[in-house]
Structures are given as structure tokens and as C-alpha cells.
Write a protein that binds this DNA or RNA. Structure first.
Lengths: 239, 239
DNA sequence: CACCGTTGCGTTCATATTGGTCATGGAAGG
DNA sequence: CCTTCCATGACCAATATGAACGCAACGGTG
């Protein structure tokens, strides 16, 4: 089976290069090109389609200088471009998710994400395509049954757990992350402990992990008696 | 939450009446109207949108006298109509499924189907909407995390139609579901074990399956020594 | 200015308690 | 009687907690 041709649409050059590099590391995917804004993305897709090598999948950032990602998706459909779309955004608004689904977005990635998350989402998309290309054996005839379609949809939309370092639980990490997102200023490990009802050791361990991952920054707080206290601050997610 | 307004698009009068009757039997759904062909369907949707009562969901037959279902979906998007679509078809062609996904089809029903299948697909769609309207409890704040989005997408799967994984029995799953429905708060796996008289392993396996299917949410309970205990909460809100 | 007690957090370790997995037994169906 | 499937019990792995220890800055005191 030929590779899935991917177009990366992202205005920030650093992020665009990162996504392109991610694509290169994945089996079964080929980078078709990159576009820094909506207009050039649409033009590129039209050119590729005219050249007989249409784009199969678009990694579409929602925040672009000229057009919103949803607008691009709508214009794509209006222009007869029916590549599948994986939306990438830092905007955590659920109503946007619904609108995105209505315009044919098959996956939704929230920045910042790790390569593991990225690979997982694209992998499930590839599995979705493969299941539609060759349905499960055992059914006679060329048609697809309801369960075949259901299985394809399931593989497209199934969540998956990512491997975490030993000693850390996914649910706990998520609680800490959600709490940190809401804090505008810096918080100490003790404050996290009180707010989430967990022990000081646990709170500190997860904050330390997030600091290592770059999701939060760690600074020292002086002025009070006692050993200086580390305070953690949610790093502004790069648009 | 107000009901989901549904438009039935179906050329055969008998089938159209059947679908309309199905809608009437479902909690949380209201029939907005029926259309026998693509042109009148588009006109109806435009009129509803202009009247301030837009259609939320379209049950769209793929084989219509004037237009193909995919064409209708594309024209809807081009016209700025972003109702969600559940495709209904007797044509079992998988490439159509892929194109349908690209135009924002959220579910795919293959005729002939029973009322149970119909109710299941629409029920999972309603759960999808509810999860996007109010993300899972346990996470504070207005933002949605990656796992919230994943879980919403997961509700679009059809657990009852998928073959059950090895080791699960339908009858046991039903009793666990019935018990969980009655619980207002969160329950742990041990409590389910005691209440239903089954082993901890079995209770946990079924709860885990339900959590994966999005029917229950899983959160951790902190504060006590020892490994945190998972507690499960029924999420399907009876509207 | 140097030193030392105080103070509160960082760090480590053992412990408790649950989650996860494997092989086994029993029941249902053919 | 055989096969298949699921619930079970027992084992190992995982993870938050509490306590004990160490460390670094503050604030007196010499």
C-alpha cells in the first residue's frame, strides 16, 4: 500500500518543522509539503490535486494568521478537497471540537503533545484506513457489514493510554495538569497538595515530572524562613 | 438540555415513516421534519436555520432520486449548514464510508437495521454531545484536556455492536451496568464486588470495559495509604 | 562580621493497599 | 465425552502515603 501523503499547516516555523520531522519518523506516512497559512494551504492542496497526487491527510493548526482552521476546513469542502483532517490546537474549547467534527475532522490533538501522542493518533488513523481498504475476512461478498464499519469507526476513535515513567499514574498526572492549567500565578507543591488532597510527596513528584517535560517551569521562592520552596508555573503554551 | 432536533431525509415513504417513528420513541430527540429528496432537504434546513431553530442532526439516506447523499453533505457544508450527519445506506461500499467521514458523517447505519441498532447509534451520538457540553466531572475548569476529547470521540463508538472482548459475558455486563445506573455517587471496584457477589477481578474487568467505552468515568481516590483506589461513576445522564 | 539555632521544605525509604496477570476449575453447549 | 468459555483464587507488580532525615535560608547573638 502506498504511503499516506500528509500536508502540515502551521504558522510557527519551529512547530511546523517539528511536525514535519514527526511525519518523517512514522512508518507509512510521507510529507507532501508544509504551509504557513490558510491561503497557501488551500492553493497547495489544489495544485497537488491537479497534479494527480492529492493530499490524503492534513495536519491543520486551528490558529493561523489569515484564516481560522474551521474556515479552512469549510473552504476545503466547498472547493471539493476531501482530504481527511487532524486538527491541532492549543484552544481547549469543546464547541470547536463539535464544529470540527461536523466538517470532517477525524482526530483532535491538543498542544503541547508528545511524539507518542502524535504517533498514536496518526497510527489509529492509518488503522482506520487499512480497515476500510481490506475489511476483515470471513464475510463473503464485496460489501461491508455493519460490524465492519463499526470496527473501522472504533479504531479511529478509540483512546489509548500512553506509557508513563514508572511510579506515575496517568489519572494523577492529569489531575495535576488540570489544576496547573487553571493557576495564573506560580504555586508551590504544598498548595497543590492541599488543593488536590494528595500527599506532599506525590504532588512534588508529579510537579517534578512536569518540570522535566517542560510543561511547567520551576523557580525558587525566597524570603520566608526555612528552606526555599520551589514554585511551579504553567508554561504558556506556544501558539 | 433541550432535545436534539432531527431531520429525516429518505425517499421511500415507508422507510421515512419508520425512521420518524423511531425518533419519536427515543428520549432526547425531536423530529424536526422529513424530506423525500436532497433539494427539499437543503431547503428545509435553510429555512429552519433562518427561523432560528436549526437542525442538529440529519438522518441522511445515501440513495436519493435527485442527489447522492455525499453531494448533499458537501452542499450542506458549502451552504454553511453544519448539522451532524448520520448516514443511512444499503450500499456497502467502503470508499463511500471514507468520503462520508471526510464530510463530517459521525455515524454510519447500513440497512436493514433493527430499532436496537438505531437506538444505539443515536444514543452514542447523544452521549457524544453531552460530553462535549459538560466534560467529565472530576476535572475542574472550563478547558478540555486531551483525554476529555478522546473520551468524547470514544462515545461515538458502538460498544454494544462490537464483538465483546474475550472473557466478557453479555449477562454479566448487563448486571454491572444495571448496578452502576442505580448508583448516584462513585463506587469502587470492591464495592461492586460486594454488592453483586462477584470476584474483584471480574468486577474490575467489566468496570474497565465500561470505562473504556465511555459509559463510566474512572477517577482515583486519594488520601489513604496504599495504592490509590479507582472509583467509577456512571456518566450517561438520563435527560 | 561570623556563627548557630530555628524553621520549613526537599529527599529517601519502608509500608499499606490496590491493580494486573496467569493458570485453574467448573459450567454450558454441542 | 469433548470443547469452549468465563469466573475465580493466588500471585506479582504498581503507587500513594507517612515518617525520618537532610538541607538551605532566615534571624538572632557573640
Amino acid at each position: 500500500m502506498s504511503d499516506i501523503r500528509v500536508l502540515v499547516v502551521e504558522d510557527e516555523p519551529i512547530a511546523a518543522a517539528a511536525h514535519a520531522a514527526y511525519i518523517g519518523r512514522l512508518e507509512g506516512f510521507t510529507l507532501a509539503g508544509t504551509a504557513p497559512d490558510g491561503q497557501s494551504a488551500l492553493r497547495l492542496m489544489t495544485d497537488f490535486a491537479a497534479a494527480g497526487t492529492p493530499v490524503d491527510l492534513v495536519l491543520l493548526d486551528m490558529n493561523l494568521p489569515d484564516l481560522h482552521g474551521l474556515d479552512i476546513a469549510r473552504r476545503m469542502r466547498a472547493a471539493g478537497l476531501f482530504a481527511d483532517i487532524i486538527a491541532i490546537t492549543a484552544v481547549r474549547e469543546l464547541n470547536i471540537v463539535r464544529s470540527a467534527v461536523a466538517t470532517g475532522v477525524v482526530q483532535y490533538l491538543i498542544k503541547p503533545f508528545t511524539f507518542a501522542t502524535f504517533a498514536d493518533k496518526l497510527g489509529s488513523y492509518r488503522l482506520f484506513r487499512e480497515q476500510l481498504a481490506s475489511p476483515a475476512a470471513g464475510h463473503a461478498g464485496p460489501g461491508a457489514s455493519q460490524s465492519d464499519v463499526d470496527q473501522a469507526f472504533a479504531s479511529l476513535r478509540a483512546p489509548s493510554e500512553l506509557p508513563l515513567p514508572k511510579g506515575l499514574a496517568a489519572s494523577t498526572l492529569e489531575s495535576v495538569q488540570d489544576f496547573m492549567k487553571l493557576q495564573s500565578g506560580a504555586v508551590s507543591a504544598s498548595e497543590v497538595m492541599d488543593a488536590l488532597g494528595m500527599s506532599r510527596v506525590t504532588a512534588r513528584r508529579y510537579l517534578e515530572y512536569l518540570a522535566d517535560a517542560g510543561t511547567v517551569t520551576r523557580t525558587a521562592r525566597y524570603g520566608a524562613p526555612g528552606r526555599p520552596e520551589n514554585e511551579y508555573r504553567w508554561t504558556r503554551t506556544a501558539s
